[in-house]
Every structure is written in C-alpha cells, then in structure tokens.
Design a protein around this nucleic acid. Structure first.
Lengths: 198, 198
DNA sequence: ACCCGACTATGACAGCGGTCATAGTAGCCC
DNA sequence: GGGCTACTATGACCGCTGTCATAGTCGGGT
C-alpha cells in the first residue's frame, strides 16, 4: 500500500484510515491511531490542531486520492482495456484482500459517510470529494475506451455504487459472492457502452 | 412508516433503527434511544438484557424485514411489473425521502455493517440476515416477472448493491444524483433479462 | 551562550458510554 | 391481604474519549 517509513504525520493519517476502515469513525480513538502509527501521542495535537475531525478528514482525503490513483494502475494491468475489464480489476482488489487477509476492513469513505454525514459537515464534504476524486478518473478512463462522454460519468457512478454496495454485503456475509456477482453481471453492460458508439 | 403507538419495546427497536440510520451504531447511545422512543430508561435492561448488542441486532433485524416487505408494496404499485420498474421504485423511496426530509439518514443495515462487522459477530450476522431477507423477495419478484432463476438472485444482489452504494454517495454529496443515475443506467439491463428468456 | 522553533511527554479534566444494583410501583391471581 | 410477575426508577461505577495545559527535549542558527 504505502511506503514503509514516511513522516509520522503521514503515518498517522494512514493509520487512521486503516482503523476507520475496520471499526468506523466513532469507535476509532485518537490514542489508538497514534499507537498504531508508532507515533507519540503528543504529536496528535501538534500535527492536527483541528482535532479528530481534521485527522478523519485527512484520512478520507487520502483514501479518495489513493482510490483515484489505483485506477491508472488497473488500466496499466489490462493489455486490452475495456470498461468491464476495469471494473473487474477494481472488484478484484477487494476479493483478493478478503480472501487473503479476511473481511476485517471496508471502505473508509463509506465508513466516514455513515458515521459523520449528519454530524460533521466537513467530513461529509471530504467524503463527497473523495467520491468525486475516484469517479473522475474512472469516467476519464471510460471515455478513453470509447464510451460517449455523457454516459461515462453515469457509468462511473454506477460502477462505484455497485462496488461500494457489494463491499458492504461481502463484509456482512463474510463471502466475496456479492463482489464477484456484481462484476459478472455488470461487465457486459459496461462493455456494451463502447460498442454502441463504435 | 410504523404505527403510532405500539408497545414500548417495539418503539425502542424502531427508534434505535432511526438513530443508527442517522449517526451510526457507535454514536447512538442507549439513553438516547430510550428518550427518542419516549420509553423509560429502566425498560432498557428489562427488554434487552443482552445490552446494546441485542438492541442493535433487533433494529437491524427489523430493518431487514421492513425492506423485504416493501418489495411487495412496490410490486403492487406497478400495473405492469418489470425489473427496471421495481428497481426504480426502490430507488424512488430514497429520492423521495431525501428530497422531502433531507439527507439525514442512510440505511441502518449498512451502518451496522460498517460499525460492527469486525467488532460484534452477532451484529454482523444480523446484517447478513437482513440483506438476505431483502434480496430474497427481490429475487422472487424477478422470477415472477420471467427472469431465469439462476440470474434472478444475481440481479437482486446487483440491485441492492447499487442501491446501497448510491445511498452512500447521495448522502455524501447531499444530492440524489447518484440514485437517479443508478436507476437510469441499470433499468434497461434489468429489463433485458426478461426479454432474453421470453 | 542564547534563543527559537519544531516536536515530544505527561497529566488532568470533564463528559459520556454501557452496565450493574437496588428499590420502587402497578396489576392480577389465589 | 399475600405474593407474584411485569415493569419502572434512580443512582452509582468504571472505563474510555477528545481536548487542554504545561513542561520538557532536541537541533540549528547566530
């Protein structure tokens, strides 16, 4: 995922994202984040004077940028890029994790949305930005593959919605079934959006 | 939603579901649930000797059954039932709520999954059961419409995944865009599953 | 030597969480 | 009335949370 030893600040943001992924925002303590990052507790108020909300926002931010960057990697892994292939790759990242590391973690952006959408306006905005920073590259990739621009954005939203929902179901069921199902059913529809225009 | 004045026990379960929907599981206090239900605090340990976990599980359970029952109502509202029409109706329940009541609440099952999947085994199981009790009726409705049985389950999973994900995005963005997009893009695919077999 | 900024180290505080303990009330059956 | 069950009413406890306050260390500049 991330490099081994960045600065303590970055490590704390990363640790926050990891813990939020697992337990949700409310159940993740500041002290716990510091401990997990191997960072001194005193650094919390130094690097994050805005308190927990700032830390959470940066973690969500980080996650959104990470997801956006991953899209480029997925594209590179496909020798014949197709929308369905990209989606399959996005799903595979999760099935791989769940099969090798267990179902401990979900999507940190989803967790932030569930826990903070109504209680912390800035975190809600950070989650929206994270979704946007993820949908954007996906939509751009689709247009590159020949999907008409006006549909690319819609399909990107559909892909991420289906993926997020399937992550939820998979985690509840402790089974990747929902993920593989969604990839299988959505693939043809996505690929059809290319040939329609070609 | 629910009748006006059921027993205090049921009211507490219902209130728990409402509060979990809004703030997540961890941020929802027992005292808060009792107050919201207009129930005495002492009744908590009387009706829910299993503590918060039991209360949360019953709330999730209730939500799952509620969602399952809604499917029948949606079908009744359609004079010509089609998969796409059913999905549009499922989505419309959320767009209606968000447009009239604001984006305060999400899906309680999603919230329970995010907050408890790793920390409370019984709640995770309750969430899985809730998803199953929701997917089942949807799949059954699809087969009734002429969708081949082996695809009905898959498509039901896809529908609920996409809906859950779109709920997340809509709440983060405070915009029903994701919901309407998903309904529009998925409708044709769902309807095609009928004509293929007919 | 002096200072200053960046960072670390603790300790305390006030609040809230779920839960336990204990006592009280209301109704009903015998 | 006695006794039983269902339910209600409080108060206390302990652990944990985020945050603040204060003091400390360390490294460079000059």
């Amino acid at each position: 995922m991330a490099q081994s030893v960045r600065g303590p600040r970055e490590r704390m943001v990363f640790s926050a994202a990891q813990l939020i992924r697992r337990d949700g925002v409310a159940a993740t303590g500041m002290r716990e984040v510091a401990a997990h990052a191997g960072a001194p507790r005193g650094s919390l108020q130094h690097y994050f004077p805005g308190g927990k909300e700032q830390l959470v926002n940066e973690a969500v931010d980080w996650a959104g940028r990470y997801a956006g960057k991953r899209v480029a990697r997925f594209l590179a892994a496909l020798d014949e890029p197709t929308p369905g292939g990209l989606f399959a790759e996005m799903v595979r990242q999760w099935t791989d994790e769940y099969e090798t590391a267990g179902f401990a973690g979900g999507c940190p952006v989803a967790a932030a949305t569930v826990d903070c959408a109504e209680s912390a306006a800035s975190t809600r905005a950070a989650a929206a930005a994270a979704f946007a920073g993820w949908t954007g590259p996906v939509a751009a990739a689709l247009t590159d593959m020949g999907v008409p621009e006006e549909r690319a954005g819609s399909l990107a939203t559909l892909m991420i919605s289906a993926l997020e929902g399937a992550i939820l179901m998979a985690r509840a069921e402790r089974d990747v079934r929902a993920l593989t199902t969604v990839a299988r059913e959505l693939g043809p529809l996505l690929d059809a959006a290319v040939s329609e225009s070609g």
